[in-house]
Amino acid sequence: MGGKVSPVEALSPASRAWGEIGSRSSDPHWGMVVDQERCIGCWSCAVICKSENDVPLGMWWNRILTEGEALDQPEVVRGGALEMHWLPLACQHCENAPCVKVCPVQATYHRRDGIVMQDSDRCIGCRYCMIACPYGVRNFNWGSPARPTPHETGMVPARPLGTVEKCTLCVQRLAEDQVPSCVWSCPTGARVFGDHNDAGGRLATLIREREGEDLLEEAGTRPSVRYLPPRRRNPL
């Protein structure tokens, strides 16, 4: 590839330092927390996901839900007050992953480091995993990809027609010790990436101290992504 380098090698030392994963255990289980107090629903994480992974128009691996009446609209809560929170949602990389269980051909599978992966060359496009996923984070390639740019973008190859795709935890970046793109690009620091098995690490500590929550815990999927609840307000 005439003088090409990996996008990580192309970074200046300062930029590269920003993305380094940092401390981890000997046998990492990758995961993430999303801080609902810091999240401002800006979709930077969703947009960079599209860009990093060349996700075509109409598909989103990562999206930001509004806990409200409509996009960026509050809801009336008890006592007539208004409230609004944002809930960024991508693959939760469940330890007990319904999608993995149901896939007839093991096209979606677990890596030892906790990442739920997708094998586009094996997927037969039955979409049973989409039925099974309680979070609705899987996208099917219904037609050939449409892009706003005339050329393919991003850092991974496009997925074939008729297969399912979803968040890979930017596995292509992890190999080079770089956090996922959505974590890099969150302007408020609402996303923290790390190793669940690294008990002293920032991820585990945040989950412990701020009582990280599971999305749809009752589904028993045991997500590798946790949510930090908004702070208590201190009204006048």
């Binding site: 989103w60 839900l65 509004t66 996009l71 949602l89 309680p134 099917f140």
Partner: peptide, 11 residues
Amino acid sequence: IGLPPGLPVGV
């Protein structure tokens, strides 16, 4: 999860 804006249609 029925929160707005919802699910990406896919196309």
